[in-house]
């Protein structure tokens, strides 16, 4: 019997999202050594990195909720 199976690793969208977000959580796109402006003492680039990290967490949540369905537990039902 074929079950409807969805694995994140086989979804191009998941890979595209991960690659983009991975690029964003590396601080290569800021001028070297720059820190101004500061927000409450935190350099602007650090805030952007934190926002990108949060975006990654949110994307992970979406992937887990919608792209992962293997029905593994149904195997146990008689």
């Amino acid at each position: 019997m074929k079950r409807r199976i969805s694995e994140p690793v086989k979804k191009p969208l998941v890979w595209i999202g991960f690659v983009i977000l991975f690029a964003l959580i590396n601080p290569w796109y800021f001028p070297a050594g720059s820190w101004s402006p500061l927000f409450f003492g935190v350099p602007y680039w650090a805030l952007i990195i934190l926002l990108a990290s949060l975006a990654l967490s949110i994307f992970i949540t979406w992937v887990v909720k919608t792209q992962w369905e293997t029905g593994a537990d149904e195997d146990e039902e008689p």
Partner: peptide
């Protein structure tokens, strides 16, 4: 140190379901 802990979960998603 903040994003590297998130990376762990990302890597999990590549193999944990299967």
């Amino acid at each position: 140190s903040v994003p590297f802990f998130i990376m762990i979960i990302m890597v999990y998603l590549l193999f944990a379901p299967r």
